[in-house]
């Protein structure tokens, strides 16, 4: 009940009401969300494939990661901002949608996978920076990341169909 009234209050805010009632706001947010996803998944996939041992446009894994990570983070911020605005416009409906929560769970796992990589094998990247194939820890992180982000995209698309 407490949660329900909070969600109701969220979708009664002026911003949420405006998004819900304007014909342009929601498709614009969706388009920006897809644009962000394309850049998040596109840049992450390039790094993941390098972690799996597929040569990229440069040999150094460390420099590749440093070069692409700013794109990933900016695009991810766009996805979070647009996702949040879509959520508040229909907070109660989204909160009742099980695919929405599965997607949040998959995002959390993708974040954990990245955290494990950064605290683990990434700390020793100077040792395997230019070696192919990369160590098993890096390859595991690459496979995990590709699988989890694919899951995020599928679950995200399914939210609209349930």
């Amino acid at each position: 009940m407490e949660l329900q009234s909070t969600l109701q209050a969220i979708q009664d805010t002026r911003v949420a009401t405006m998004i819900r009632e304007s014909g342009l706001a929601f498709p614009t947010l969706e388009s920006l969300h897809v644009l962000g996803i394309a850049l998040v998944f596109g840049t992450i996939a390039i790094v993941d494939l390098r972690l799996l041992g597929y040569a990229s446009h440069r040999r150094s894994a460390h420099r590749l990661i440093k070069e692409l990570l700013p794109f990933t983070w900016i695009a991810f911020a766009v996805c979070v901002a647009t996702g949040l605005l879509m959520f508040i416009s229909n907070a109660i409906t989204y909160a009742e949608n099980s695919f929405f929560w599965w997607k949040m769970g998959a995002l959390l796992l993708a974040g954990l996978n990245m955290g494990v990589f950064h605290l683990g094998v990434y700390r020793r990247i100077d040792e395997w920076d230019v070696s192919l194939p990369p160590p098993s820890g890096a390859r595991a992180a690459g496979v995990g990341s590709l699988a989890l982000w694919t899951l995020v995209i599928f679950l995200g698309r399914w939210i609209g169909f349930s």
């Binding site: 897809v34 644009l35 996803i37 394309a38 850049l39 998040v40 998944f41 596109g42 840049t43 996939a45 390039i46 446009h57 692409l68 794109f71 694919t150 995209i153 599928f154 698309r157 399914w158 609209g160 169909f161």
Partner: peptide, 22 residues
């Protein structure tokens, strides 16, 4: 069928757009 095909479509958008941007 439709949500699966749309999900694959989005994945391919990510590949083409990521490659294009880089």
């Amino acid at each position: 069928i439709v949500p699966t095909v749309q999900s694959v479509h989005i994945m391919a958008i990510a590949v083409i757009f990521g490659s294009a941007v880089i």
